[in-house]
Design a protein around this nucleic acid. Structure first.
Lengths: 351, 351
DNA sequence: CTGAAAGCGCTTACAG
DNA sequence: CTGAAAGCGCTTACAG
């Protein structure tokens, strides 16, 4: 064990230059080999219970705490979990991050976050960097990635769970994911508006990410079912979502299509902006036009009138996805590989 | 170099079990020693320029990328930067995180985030865990920490920059920090309200974290200067800040002190909620009562009436702090150790 | 300016 | 169930 000619006498104090208490220190103090300490501390089977206890006692007496870098180097696996989200400026993703991170930390994992800005090549680059750290697991937003990214995710042995989206069909090599059906949610809100008597329901969207597009498809199919679909009822703007943009879009819609009797916004921030614009313009909501949003973000219940919206279970998604990942990282198979957490129509005053 | 009896003939391909291209592979292919490759790649002085180029060429041809864990273990320093923020549910801190993270990533650092929930012992625990990863740097919110945490931050060699706050006086061992003077900002908004003729200015606050308290002191001193201070004008609620709470507090204030002619909220979400409540209650803003907020959060410019507030430079704080940390991590001394980024009164319709 | 060697602190086949 | 030994992939005094 002693590496060179030791000039210091045998003591229980660390003999390393760094002064850190190491696994060898514990081994020496407990009178067992480093291998045994390693196994005992990690709860590996095949260790005498008596030894486990002795090692644990000595370990905590000495204040030993394992070095993550050494562990990662030796085992080729770190205690990092990488999470990829599109934006930090959308509370939706922050909620996801917050709940996933909380769950992961409680299980001893560090969260490495990456912000892709909805940019496929940035996502790819980020993933490459994160994979270098040999993360124990991966949490990624959505199911849409460029081919290289997908290959990276597949070829690596790192367990991966997708957030928010679900595959259209419970297909063949379906990936692990937890989310809800965006398309259904879009259709459900549209039918809700239809059932309250609205006839000319516009769909207004910004950002135009894959999930927004799915909501659009849901709205379309519900209107087509009702025989009320018209392409000119679609108002799509690729700009980032914001209250200000919602206000602008609303104004533009009411100007171009004054007969519209409902506007379904793809996100609550747009809808909140529309509500404020309506107040400013003296447009009566919901009597003249109904306004609906999506996600039930902060403040939607405080608007005047309060906003009818689709409540999405993002905190639960983050938590459930983290739990599924923990299962995978233990080497087990999560029972349903796809978890649908659903959504809920929240009927308030704006419709 | 060869570890055991090599059964494979000499090739340029990796001989490691992991299949990864290592530094030794590059060394072998470039015909130099591993030490030289290490030095050349990290741009350490004292390497022949010709060799540097050769090594770089070979390295990129082989697709070599250094292993962070090995590097961390050998050098006792990772490429992680730990950042400690109170909450993820306040956009203020998300903005901080976003901009700091962007700056750090561009310089090759990974961000390790920790959410303290304004809990001193959680902060301490989080810091301990992060320190295990031997981060290259530390970004922490505020200057208020419990003694143990402060000792941890001091005793470690890890460079540390504080966000948001500045020390009262440019004192002795003043820590590195970038922020603005909360107290002055609180006083400035109060004077702004006074100068527009308001006489009975209430201060309404939630969360009551250290920075909120500083704003309170600023408001107090400005009112005292004007001889208009009354303790009963203070409305303090330790609950988390939200639009709904702002609405409630506003209603309560107007009920208890109908003669109040202005309410200065410690955060925009409260003020936005108050604005919505005023609309609901039919209280005229600003004619009957002025409403002011703090931080200029998303949506404040879209309210009806739009919200007068204090714009705080959080994105610039995150970026500047990250840059200061980069300087420290290079072993240099940032010129001003304290950077005051100031604030700005944004006069809108609500006052 | 360059290299050989030791070391960072663990994990993990491999024997026993 | 336990231990000796090799190895993970780098960095860094120490010589030269």
């Amino acid at each position: 064990m002693p590496n060179t000619v030791s000039t210091t006498p045998k003591t229980l104090k660390s003999h390393r230059a760094t002064g850190r208490v190491t696994l060898s220190d514990v081994a020496q103090a407990a009178g067992v080999s480093p291998s045994t300490v390693s196994r005992a501390l990690r709860g590996e089977r095949a260790v005498d219970p008596a030894l486990i206890e002795r090692v644990q006692t000595v370990s905590s007496r000495l204040g030993y705490v394992p070095d993550p870098a050494a562990r990662a180097l030796a085992s080729q696996r770190s205690n990092h979990v990488a999470i990829l989200i599109p934006l930090l400026s959308n509370t939706l993703f922050v909620d996801l991050l917050d709940s996933a991170q909380k769950t992961l930390r409680a299980a001893g994992f560090q969260t490495l976050m990456g912000v892709t800005h909805y940019d496929a090549s940035e996502e790819e680059q980020l993933l490459r960097e994160q994979l270098l750290h040999r993360p124990a697991g991966l949490l990624v937003t959505g199911l849409d990635h460029n081919p290289v990214t997908r290959k990276l995710m597949d070829s690596t042995q790192v367990p991966c769970v997708h957030l928010m989206d679900l595959p259209l069909a419970a297909s063949d090599g379906a990936p692990y994911c937890v989310g809800f059906r965006q398309t259904e949610a879009g259709a459900a809100m549209t039918r809700h508006l239809l059932s309250s008597g609205r006839q000319r329901i516009a769909f207004a969207a910004a950002q135009l990410d894959p999930r927004v597009m799915q909501r659009l498809y849901g709205w379309r199919s519900a209107l087509q079912e009702a025989g009320l679909y018209e392409p000119t009822l679609e108002f799509l703007n690729p700009a980032p979502s914001s209250l200000a943009l919602g206000g602008l879009m609303f104004e533009q819609i009411m100007h171009q299509r004054p007969a519209v009797d409902a506007v379904f916004f793809c996100n609550d921030d747009l809808a909140q902006g529309a509500l404020m614009a309506a107040l400013r313009l003296g447009i009566a909501v919901p009597s003249q036009v109904a306004i609906a949003g999506f996600n039930d973000l902060t403040g939607s219940d405080q608007m005047l009138p309060s906003l009818t919206t689709v409540r999405t279970p993002r905190a639960r998604i983050g938590k459930a996805a983290a739990q599924m990942l923990l299962t995978l990282m233990r080497g087990e198979s999560p029972d349903p590989a796809q978890v649908d957490l659903g959504f809920e129509i929240v009927q308030r005053q704006s419709t």
